[in-house]
Design a protein around this nucleic acid. Structure first.
Lengths: 257, 257
DNA sequence: CGTCGGCTTGAAGTTAATCAACAATCGTGG
DNA sequence: CCACGATTGTTGATTAACTTCAAGCCGACG
């Protein structure tokens, strides 16, 4: 067995002012408005943590003393069903906080793990609570974070859990490679895609393979894909699925060789 | 055209202290800790609003000056897709707030309408904002509200958008008649169920009919259902669906007559 | 009494899951 | 550097599940 429960392949470091300045998440972060001397004090409570892909940040049900703000990379939030199946309920990107529920004294709602290489800024829940009481603007920032989470959840519900398999895959590809999440061009593994879309890995594989054959996506490097035909994918994302009626594409049918 | 946009079949009333005392939502409400003189002042900004089933509270995209706290009944939050199809992304119950996003200056995220007869306590967004700045405990209450929304969204994602149609319907029935939502015994119309489960009304109808024939649910009155076989429904909710292999049930097959 | 909306049912057609095999890729250690 | 086993991705054949289209039913209501 691989020691799945202890895959905290992480590394921890003190945070410097330089880290903060270079932080790609600073704008969206809840601490964006804390500056100068205050920030200097604040960051003594921070730690930089990095996780290799698939490493775990939280386990569902745990009661952690820290929450994390994502600095770089993408993390997935997983709910494990009673029958053991895993469902990815949303992805988080730089600037998002994970573990906000800890602020309320609750236990972790999801298992959070790294989809890509992940870097977070870790902070004590208690410390954060103190600051919230003192600073109403911070509360507003947190409202926004929660709202972002909700919007994200709605997105997964409306875009990734509705419609045909073709439409879902198309929508996910667009999502992963546009403003929403994709700074670069990250295409998750088939299993992760399946867990986001409520499909099987086989189905996802078939459909992505089909898209590739049709030239709608051209893989570049590992889990990366620079060129995709956004327009056509958008059509598929909207329509109920396959090639638009009337516009059959003779190219693919014979694809299997 | 039916004036669909103006189906605000509502009635508005000033709020009295007695209303507050009798409020079934008082415990979960964000204002639970405001009492005495403060409350007396507070409620001058409240209005009681009641909606008949299907009436609309908010329209997605609108910028309303009020948010609502549900006092009684159940409301549905609807997202309308680009192709016009409606998806119910969650239900809210007494004590829940709708329109929190208005606090952040955003427009309404969902079309909110009454599933059952609905009574809400309406409040000015601006007034609420003032109070938040003055009262950190209120912020904490709001955190909780947002978190409840998130939990609810996760529930819809994991319970109602995954698994076979049988499992989904079973889970929804259990949800509607247990702690989660169901004080009484509300069974939504087939179309609403379909919109929550990502299925067609026909499929939902078939499955509920099947459940009825098997005696798993016995309708009582209009959209109400007192007796249901929770245990068997739980089994169906977990398993991938129909009668467990080996334990075929001879009762149903001939059901059609 | 007739019509309308919501529910049920049937038959046919599609779609995606399942089971099973195989290919490609990765990481590891020889 | 290559060989090996272990993942991860691809593909096919088959079956089960759900949708679609179409019709009929029932109760409410004008």
């Amino acid at each position: 067995m691989a020691l799945t429960s202890i895959d905290g392949a992480q590394e921890v470091r003190i945070v410097t002012m330089a880290d903060c300045h270079g932080c790609p998440a600073i704008k969206r972060s809840i601490f964006s408005l804390v500056a100068g001397r205050d920030r200097a004090e604040l960051i003594t409570h921070f730690r930089l943590v990095s996780f290799s892909p698939k490493a775990t940040v939280f386990h569902e049900g745990d009661r952690e003393p820290y929450l994390h703000i994502v600095r770089g990379g993408i993390a997935k939030l997983i709910k494990t069903g009673e029958s053991g199946e895993e469902r990815i309920v949303r992805l988080v990107r730089p600037g998002d906080a994970v573990g906000l529920e800890l602020l309320l004294g609750d236990s972790c709602r999801h298992t959070v793990s790294a989809l890509t290489r992940l870097e977070t800024c870790r902070m004590s829940v208690d410390e954060l609570r103190k600051r919230i009481d003192a600073n109403p603007e911070l509360a507003a920032k947190l409202f926004r974070q929660w709202q972002d989470g909700l919007d994200n959840a709605d997105l997964f519900l409306t875009e990734f859990s509705t419609g045909t398999a073709h439409a879902r895959v198309a929508r996910l590809l667009l999502y992963m490679t546009t403003g929403g999440i994709g700074e670069n061009c990250v295409i998750p593994g088939r299993e992760d895609m399946a867990a986001m879309l409520g499909l099987t890995t086989e189905t996802v594989s078939r459909i992505t393979a089909e898209f590739k054959r049709q030239g709608l996506m051209v893989p570049e490097g590992e889990h990366c894909c620079e060129t995709l035909d956004r327009e056509k994918l958008k059509t598929i994302a909207l329509s109920s699925g396959r090639s638009t009626p009337g516009e059959r594409d003779p190219g693919d049918a014979a694809g299997g060789h």
